[in-house]
């Protein structure tokens, strides 16, 4: 489990991988998350307006509207038909994630990902085994619940507490009370449920997961013959159940990780000393 942090101890005698090789996708993801945040902060901080607004709805360079499609769905559930700016923005975002990969949002954009990754890392490091995660399907119920709540109350009820928008908005516009929710999620993931928030509860993750059923960008295990069952990938994966079918040919021959729960974070590629995994597209069936 700890071999990822000790690259020199390489049983197979393969050349030790460089820091870049071991952390490439993590670095790229953090860069993506930071750059997206900076695009919003460059305006208020430096007067250079790249993106205005936040992840809920934004206007980039004064021309590109982007809107969270789940939020538009909730708005429609309340009985309000948004202006075309929001609808077009939602359509663009929808198309992007349908095409590229639903939960790419979770690992490459969402700011809460950094918090829950930190919690998961701490949990591994501290060897915390306490608690019990709720069923992973809870998020789909919650997704249905927030749409129902919007319809029943006529307000965007989920937005009162939604940690994703709370954190992103807070980072850009300033936050106080919202920090409590973010801290709550950190400690929930740390002490109560491993990968509890992103992997079991978050309705946004559930929504983007549904979008990504047929998305193009996929992680595959073409070199699965080299797997020495070290379990590093399972330990680090935020949705470990998605790896097995591709790696161990359980119920499928394809080396592609096809489950829509996969966030395409690429962390398994980073941690695997045998270089079993790679980032590829949906039609790449090559194996070995």
């Amino acid at each position: 489990m700890t071999s990822s942090s000790l690259p020199l101890k390489n049983d197979a005698g393969a050349p030790a991988r460089s820091l870049w090789q071991r952390q490439r996708w993590l670095i790229l993801r953090r860069a993506s998350q930071t750059l997206i945040l900076l695009a919003f902060l460059a305006g208020p901080w430096f007067g250079v307006w790249i993106a205005k607004g936040n992840l809920s709805s934004s206007l980039t360079l004064g021309v590109l509207p982007l809107t969270d499609p789940l939020l538009v769905l909730q708005t429609l559930a309340t009985g309000h038909l948004p202006y075309s700016a929001a609808l077009i923005g939602a359509a663009i975002v929808l198309a992007f994630y349908l095409l590229i990969g639903g939960r790419v949002f979770c690992s490459w954009v969402c700011p809460v990902n950094v918090v829950t990754d930190a919690a998961a890392w701490s949990r591994r490091r501290l060897g915390i085994k306490t608690g019990r995660a709720p069923d992973a399907d809870t998020r789909y119920w919650l997704l249905g619940g927030i749409l129902l709540a919007a319809a029943a109350t006529g307000t965007l009820a989920w937005e009162w507490v939604n940690p994703v928008s709370l954190l992103h908005r807070g980072l850009i516009f300033g936050m106080g009370g919202g920090l409590a929710v973010i801290a709550g999620i950190f400690f929930y993931d740390l002490l109560v449920a491993s990968r509890g928030w992103c992997g079991h509860l978050c309705p946004m993750g559930a929504f983007y997961g549904l979008l990504g059923k047929k998305a193009l960008l996929r992680v595959a295990a073409p070199n699965r013959k080299a797997c020495d069952d070290c379990m590093d990938c399972f330990a680090v994966c935020p949705e470990p159940q998605v790896i097995r079918p591709a790696l161990k040919k359980v119920g499928q021959e394809s080396p592609l990780i096809l489950a829509s729960d996969c966030t395409t974070c690429g962390r398994c590629i980073d941690v695997c000393d045998k270089q079993v995994f790679k980032m590829t597209h949906r039609f790449d069936q090559r194996s070995e």
Partner: peptide
Amino acid sequence: DFLGACVRCGL
């Protein structure tokens, strides 16, 4: 109505 229409984007 506002609470159902506003997506809290801050634009």
